[in-house]
Write a protein that binds this DNA or RNA. Structure first.
Lengths: 242, 242
DNA sequence: TAGTGGTCTAGACCACCCT
DNA sequence: GGGTGGTCTAGACCACTAC
């Protein structure tokens, strides 16, 4: 195991430890080696190890107890099924289903009022809208509509890229990196347009996620509306306290 | 401004910078002093300052750009209204409403099946259940039911403590600190029992939050069910990317 | 008491942005 | 080029837990 200088050491070590947890080299509920031991083994400073462990703790993978040790959180075997990060395909797989994605439409059109508001653009702005359906074991569970202003889009979106998550689309077509996202969560009765895609009976509520994505310059670069059938796929948050 | 040695410096500096942002010493969208300048001013090392700034960035308050500077995120003036942290009274205030809390009941009873499942206890376990109503401008918006196993409770809960958030209750009556919480989010039709408290028409969906709280030993110490009227109070997440 | 994680320092070098 | 944040090191001391 050799560490390269090109990539941050932290980003190289994190997947190593994640793999060890996944492969039960460090078994569920079991203790990890001490910071010093890990630092020695991986030939890095203790501060670097600490930085990695802090990230894993923030994500809930490990629990740290002063004077005691660092332990694998056995309750979070499916921790990546939590909200945040946002790759629906991955999310579905991690919940034990086979995932598939079905493009519904790609079109250029004027923004809606809601979209213009969140994106902070004029109401006659042209956008590219991508509507997609995610299925778990071929059962439709999520419908998403993503909207990107044409002004930042570098060319038309290739139909072959319909499966790409929003952050990769932005990277590929706008060279934009998402810095953070704001999500509002609502409960809604399944509207007719949505019901059609989700193929469910009309009378039970689903979750509506209203997302806005910002770049490094703090400008909104994309907007998303997702209808989420939580009966198949739980929307789960892990919140470190304090 | 003198820093004490007793409390971690990071925890002393963080509120200082937060205050400066709130009081617009560092105006919205404006730039903070460089890490070195802050380190000099506050008489700490750059690493310490960086640790504070990393926390503020993770919470969305500031944006950091390599080679450029650190900026106040003007979009997050109401950032504390995001989910996580979990003090509903505070949340309501930050949304610009006057907040109030109305205890509905405190009782000792057997756990329900759902509660027993989440808490990992036997079905005949005795628990203390606290049901409360939170109002914004006197309009009921949240109903919460918190459940704590009597086995870890140190004495009966005083009626005067009904206004305490769950983490403070656990601290006071069990001497337990919450390490993390897992929350599942559902959309539900307002059930009759809930409707009664929320005083709404029956036919629109609300959010149901199912929370389990864990201590340092990774044992569930409390369970909560909250019904959340998102029409008055948005449920908002801020997600740092990457 | 030994070993753990928690905090903090001082300094180095790098990547990046702006002018 | 000069300043910024990003990464990393080596070492120190402290607070806490388990034994």
């Amino acid at each position: 195991m050799t560490l390269q200088r090109s990539k941050p050491i932290v980003d190289q070590i994190k997947p190593i430890l994640k793999d060890r947890i996944r492969n039960k080299v460090y078994p569920p509920g079991g203790r990890l080696p001490s910071e010093s031991d890990l630092a020695d083994e991986l030939r890095v400073s203790r501060a670097t190890i600490r930085s990695v462990l802090a990230q894993l703790a923030a994500e809930g993978f490990i629990l740290r107890r002063q004077g005691d040790g660092t332990y694998v959180n056995e309750r979070i075997h499916d921790i990546e099924s939590r909200y945040g990060g946002w790759n629906f395909l991955h999310l579905i797989e991690l919940n034990g289903y086979s995932s598939s994605i079905k493009p519904i439409s790609i079109e250029q059109r004027k923004v809606s009022d809601v979209e213009a508001d969140w994106l902070g653009v004029a109401t006659d702005t042209s956008v590219t809208s991508i509507e997609r359906l995610f299925a778990a074991d071929d059962i439709p569970v999520i419908v998403t509509i993503n909207v990107i202003p044409d002004s930042i889009l570098d060319g038309a979106v290739d139909l072959a890229d319909e499966y790409l998550p929003i952050d990769e689309l932005l990277k590929k077509y706008c060279d934009e990196d998402i810095t953070y996202a704001i999500t509002d969560i609502d409960a809604v009765s399944a509207e007719k347009s949505v019901i059609k895609e989700l193929k469910r009976t009309i009378d039970y509520p689903i979750l509506k996620l209203t997302e806005t994505f910002y770049n490094k310059a703090n400008q909104p670069v994309a907007f998303g509306l997702s209808y989420y059938d939580h009966r198949m796929l739980r929307l789960r948050l892990v919140q470190p306290w304090g």
